[in-house]
Design a protein around this nucleic acid. Structure first.
Lengths: 342, 342
DNA sequence: CTGAAAGCGCTAACAC
DNA sequence: GTGTTAGCGCTTTCAG
């Protein structure tokens, strides 16, 4: 079962006794070709089942019309919303988007990024994996001047366009809200602190404590990878403390949910006995019971902006790099709303 | 800011005063090249920052070492688990996976598939969009003998390898379980019936009713796109019936959850007054309250099998097509477990 | 063990 | 308007 070799522009040319360049031009709607020959060419193309070979044209043009996007995990609402945003503007501009996930593994990220480079993507949009590395694979893009945009999880030492949300303010608001609700001992389920997103959220948390004259206790902040399992384990760790917290600011909604489940198992009431707030507004957060208070990030817009930035870089060869900071909103729901709790 | 043109094997060759073919061979670890020259070549390559141009090599080899996967929505646990399964075996075999989502839109699917074809993927794994079309874009793959594997949502009229779960049995089991729990009027929230997955689930539902001597009533089965909104709307439609159901078999977990939320709003207790079962086992189903009974599909394995099938086709040029039917399991949780309900 | 030469399919500068 | 030619970067006979 061998791959029939594909018809090429030369086959069309031969059939019509014209040159391949004419065919090429006609197929690109080059106005220099007469309508008559163009129509002939197109009809032959259809008849023999011609399909352009993008590989060849990309090689020739040194341009793939493709932008790569790599995220830690596609199955996270935040990331898939960003992807949709990127796709929306990229498709409109005639670009194809290829998606890959690193699973938060440094090695996989390196392999993916290398492969995207080797396939000559015109630009790369990335939110880096949790697992730290030296980022040599990304520096190549800078060196070769291939447009690169970071979003959400950025690499501070590489200069490039970056889009982040205001994690500091997000963390601050969450904590302030918990304080306002009358919670006294507020724990924090942090992500890996080598990532700026998570360290900023923690800084916000610390700032709010300090502004309210609450001393920070080291044991109340626990860092993990924020999987569902981490959430339950960390909740256990916090609640097993001699002096456990009465509220937890969780690094994401997944851990907020598994914390709630764990607290329920302990027979503790959320939000009456323990308040919980998440981050990122996964769709389930609105629907579970108690519904989860969380920080809403403009993910789709982030994707749009990322795509706009990269297209600008690709097409207008901009030279300056910006860091866009997008606003977040605190969405107060049941899990931290002691006042309204029945 | 112009793209510096990349170093090529010729640059290496010139520097070492050898031929490009030697360089090419050395870089592929061809044993015909002496270790000495190979080492020299490799060190020059590193020094000048050489990176192979996959585009060129793909063009020459008529092979991209890439397999494409297109799913309706990457942000569904089922699909992202399949993708992970595909990635796992494809990466091991040295293939790159490019992912795209159709958003259940026929036009987007067509554009994606065309673009993948144009980029000469070595094979395509696809679960088709809800929106129906004539599937000409997929028939091309058959015509050109490019390996094609369907999973979950398949196109019956195209012969290819297919992997599905036993939706019929799944639907049957769900319905039988609800009957066993003592529910008397069982509604069904169906997906688009032009897709076999959904029509099979419905057939299973009908079969179970009939086996138990329960007459089917047309109004109890409502078809939709199964978004979260559809779930609430359909639940309303069903509960507004003069003679509403006391149990609903929902087409997926998303609609199961939004149905539960809607029923709660009505003041109805799940599972005591109304039983609910979903399909696909989204991670949140286990964690919400009441936890949602659902059908567990072996998604990751489905991805692995799909990748194995396509790699076989690519590399061994198999000629026969199989349809693999994978088993499902009913996971009984709170939302339909009247007996254990408090 | 290494080199010369041809070509994958497409494009674009240059001619006419 | 259309053809000629050269070449994108890599691989692979064939020859030595």
């Amino acid at each position: 079962m061998q791959k029939k070799s594909e018809p090429t522009i030369h086959d069309i040319a031969r059939e019509l006794k014209i040159s391949a360049s004419t065919v090429s031009r006609a197929l690109q709607n080059n106005p220099r070709i007469s309508l008559k020959t163009r129509d002939k060419i197109i009809s032959v193309a259809e008849r023999i089942g011609y399909h352009p070979n993008t590989l060849a044209s990309n090689l020739r043009n040194k341009k793939s019309n493709t932008i790569g996007i790599v995220v830690p995990l596609i199955n996270r609402n935040f990331f898939s919303a960003v992807i949709s945003g990127v796709e929306e503007v990229a498709f409109k501009a005639g670009y194809t988007v290829v998606i890959s996930q690193s699973n938060d593994l440094a090695n996989k990220e390196i392999a993916i990024v290398r492969s995207m480079f080797a396939n000559r993507v015109d630009g790369l949009i990335i939110s880096i994996a949790m697992q730290p590395t030296n980022y040599e694979h990304l520096k190549i893009f800078r060196k070769k001047n291939i447009p690169l945009v970071f979003f959400d999880r950025v690499v501070p030492e590489i200069e490039a366009n970056k889009i982040v949300v205001d994690d500091f303010l997000g963390g601050f608001r969450v904590t302030q809200h918990l304080i306002d609700q009358g919670y006294k001992r507020i724990g924090h389920m942090a992500g890996p602190l080598n990532l700026q997103t998570y360290s900023d959220r923690k800084r916000g948390y610390l700032e709010a404590l300090s502004k309210n004259g609450i001393p920070f206790e080291e044991e109340l902040s626990v860092s993990s990878s924020l999987t569902s399992e981490d959430g339950a384990a960390t909740a256990k760790k916090l609640m097993d403390l001699p002096n456990p917290p009465d509220a937890i600011f969780c690094g994401n909604d997944t851990t907020a949910l598994s914390s709630i489940v764990y607290l329920k198992e302990l027979g503790l009431k959320v939000p009456q006995e323990v308040g919980i707030v998440g981050f990122s507004n996964e769709p389930f957060s609105r629907m579970v019971s108690p519904s989860i208070s969380t920080i809403v990030q403009p993910a789709f817009m982030m994707g749009q902006k990322a795509a706009e930035l990269i297209l600008n870089q690709i097409e207008q060869k901009e030279r300056t790099f910006r860091t866009l900071v997008l606003p977040t909103e605190l969405e107060i729901r049941e899990s931290s709303n002691r006042r309204l709790a029945p």
